[in-house]
Structures are given as structure tokens and as C-alpha cells.
């Protein structure tokens, strides 16, 4: 073992330079060609403000499409899920409470139409999407709160529906983009 120590140490130093120095530096260089120079995709808002396109935001106000519940409160300085098991009694009470709250805020909807993604937490706590059904069930409430026609909002949902990629994967809606569009038609 003794005679292998010096070569091992030198080889380690060389590998650190190659794998932890040169490799990330080149990837960083490539990232300068990507949108927003590899600092995360952003959407510009009014003035200088911007949002991260892929990082979900908390929407709790009735005038917006709600995002999914989050175990980290959409604070992207951390991330994570609830890690509750499917038969945990506390967890099931929590889901029941979310369903009840949703029905209070959306009178007249059929409970059977509430999709589970609206009342369960995502894996990252930062899920930027909701299912199509989760958007559709909120149309009536938003139309009422904003005094807009249901068909106008329906149209907006259709426009923001992201189809499966080359026929693969689920349909989804980016909540932030949809809500920004909602604000835009409201001010016009």
C-alpha cells in the first residue's frame, strides 16, 4: 500500500482539476449561450421585475388559479414533499380539510370533480403546474370574483394547456403563466 500512496495523491489532485475544475467550467461556458445565461429561465413582468418560469408560486387568493399545496410553502430556498404515508391518519385529516376549504370557496361544484392534485402536496413543494381538470374546476369561481365571462377564462385555459411532448407524458398547465394572462385581460 505504501508505494501506492504518492501516485494516488497526485492522481487525485489531477482528477480534481479535471473533473471538478475543467468539466464544470466548460459546462458553465456552454450555459452562457442558454436563455438567461444558465441562471434559470425567467419571465419578465412589469418594469424590472421577473419571475422564475419553472419555480411554482403560492396562489391562495380567490382571484387566481390556485397552485398545489406545498410542504415548504413555495419558498424555494428549500424544497421537499410532505413525506406522509398514504394511510397516515393526520395526513388524511389534512386532505379532508383542504377539500372542505375548496368547496367553501367554490360553491356549486361537484366534489367528484375535484382532482387530487389540488389537495395533495407535490414532491418538490415547488410544482409549477396543475392538471387541466384542476384549472377547469376553478373557472366558475374566477369568473365570478373578477366579473369576467366564463367563456373568456375557458379560452385562456385552453391556450395555456401544454400538450404531451411528442405525444409523451401528461397534459399540464403552468399556473404562473395562466395567472399572468388572467391579470392582463383584466386590466385591458
Amino acid at each position: 500500500m505504501k508505494k501506492e500512496i504518492i501516485p494516488s495523491i497526485i492522481l487525485t489532485i489531477i482528477c480534481i482539476i479535471l473533473l471538478s475544475g475543467i468539466y464544470p467550467a466548460i459546462v458553465w461556458g456552454i450555459a452562457q449561450l442558454a436563455p438567461n445565461k444558465g441562471e434559470g429561465f425567467v419571465i419578465k413582468d412589469k418594469g424590472n421585475s421577473y419571475f422564475y418560469e419553472n419555480i411554482g408560486q403560492n396562489f391562495s387568493d380567490d382571484k387566481y388559479f390556485l397552485s398545489r399545496p406545498s410542504a415548504v410553502g413555495y419558498n424555494a430556498a428549500g424544497s421537499g414533499g410532505s413525506n406522509k404515508g398514504p394511510d397516515n391518519p393526520d395526513y388524511l385529516l389534512q386532505v379532508q380539510a383542504r377539500i372542505d376549504t375548496f368547496i367553501v370557496h367554490n360553491p356549486g361544484i361537484n366534489k367528484r370533480d375535484i382532482p387530487s392534485d389540488l389537495v395533495t402536496a407535490s414532491g418538490s413543494g415547488l410544482d409549477p403546474h396543475i392538471s387541466v381538470q384542476a384549472a377547469k374546476i376553478q373557472i366558475k369561481r374566477i369568473a365570478k370574483v373578477r366579473g369576467l365571462s366564463e367563456s373568456a377564462i375557458s379560452g385562456l385555459v385552453e391556450v395555456h394547456l401544454e400538450p404531451p411532448m411528442y405525444g409523451m407524458g401528461p397534459e399540464r398547465i403552468n399556473v404562473l403563466k395562466l395567472n399572468m394572462a388572467l391579470d392582463r385581460i383584466d386590466t385591458n
Partner: peptide
């Protein structure tokens, strides 16, 4: 999906989605 959630009377079109991301879905 989760039989307990089914019992509460809501829909589970995306399957058991607790702890999952909408963009990947239950199958992936």
C-alpha cells in the same frame, strides 16, 4: 391512486399524486 382519497369522494385522474410532480405524472 389512494383508496382513502377515493373514499373521500374526490377524483384521482392523475393517480396517487401526493409527493409527485404534475409534469411527470404517476406513470413516469
Amino acid at each position: 391512486g389512494n383508496p382513502y382519497l377515493a373514499h373521500m369522494g374526490i377524483a384521482q385522474p392523475g393517480g396517487n399524486i401526493e409527493g409527485k410532480e404534475v409534469r411527470f405524472g404517476a406513470i413516469a
